[in-house]
């Protein structure tokens, strides 16, 4: 027997929760770029918003608590692009290593 009520973690409507946190932030460039990549990949037909959501939901509740909104988005964008065969896991890993070697900050890690 399972105690599962039939909902997945993202189906939050009606659950108990605390006060709404009112603090916000202005989006940083890397976050805006992730938003733009999602929109453009959708326009190009590389994957759909449903694909984005499916990947985010499959990350599980732990990821929701642990990672920020656009961190989850880039993980989901990447997952969909890998599945679509746009690039390989090896290409991604190699590139991420190269980027780490470019410099210690986001600005310094840009190409060129």
């Amino acid at each position: 027997m399972s105690d599962w009520d039939g909902r997945r973690w993202h189906d939050m409507g009606g659950q108990a929760a605390g006060p709404v946190p009112m603090e916000g932030h202005d989006f940083a460039l890397w976050e805006k770029r992730i938003d733009a990549l999602m929109v453009l990949c959708g326009q190009k037909g590389l994957f759909t918003v449903d694909g984005l959501r499916r990947a985010i939901e499959d990350m599980g509740e732990d990821a929701f608590e642990k990672y920020s909104y656009y961190e989850r988005w880039i993980a989901a964008v990447n997952q969909n692009l890998l599945e679509a065969g746009i690039y390989s896991l090896e290409e991604l890993a190699t590139r991420m290593d190269e980027i780490a070697a470019r410099g210690p900050t986001y600005a310094e890690a840009q190409h060129g």
Binding site: L37, I74, I86, E91, I99, Y106
Partner: peptide, 19 residues
């Protein structure tokens, strides 16, 4: 945000964009 140490997810964003 742009002043802190480069994060894993920022590296992923750069890599995905470049690819």
């Amino acid at each position: 945000d742009n002043d802190g140490p480069l994060t894993y997810w920022q590296r992923m964003e750069i890599a995905v964009r470049e690819l």
